[in-house]
Amino acid sequence: MQFFGSSEISPSPPAPTASGNNAHMMYVFNRNGVCLLYREWNRPLRTLDAQQDQKLMFGLLFSLKSLTAKMDPTTAEKGNLGVPQLPGQGCSFHSFRTNTYKLSFMETPSGIKLILVTHPRTGDLREPLKYIYNLYVEYVAKNPLYTPGTPIKCELFNTSLDQYVRSIA
């Protein structure tokens, strides 16, 4: 189970790679699979329309999580394949890499899923994702005008996210 100490925004963690815009896109899902945010910086290829793409992404993460929970070689008590896991329960994953992209994934205790798709040679993005989650808490969750479970339309969040992602990847 991961916990994120204080709620105030910590100083920006060191950038894992050299500068340059390597980030492709970012997804934020809530625990019901609703896509709260989709940002796109550099995406030459689109095979599906936006809604289908988001659904497929959520489905991929969900199934990969049940795969890793079942495959976990360190515990004997794993339950059946496909049993829904609560956030933080069972073995999850933090990234996967293909020859064209790297996907970094973080799930918070409240079930918010943050997904960042970057260049395949990007380093470990767990700390940057925690920082992005802090941005979400500060600018979205604490915003009195934001209704939980609806798409994020907070200008301040979007600009600070853009700025931060540009600095890390």
Binding site: L45, T68, C91, R97, N99, T100
Partner: peptide, 14 residues
């Protein structure tokens, strides 16, 4: 996001 992807090469779990 880029064409020519041949699938997952490395999955890093906990």
């Amino acid at each position: 996001p880029i064409s020519g992807c041949s699938g997952i090469e490395l999955l890093q779990a906990d």
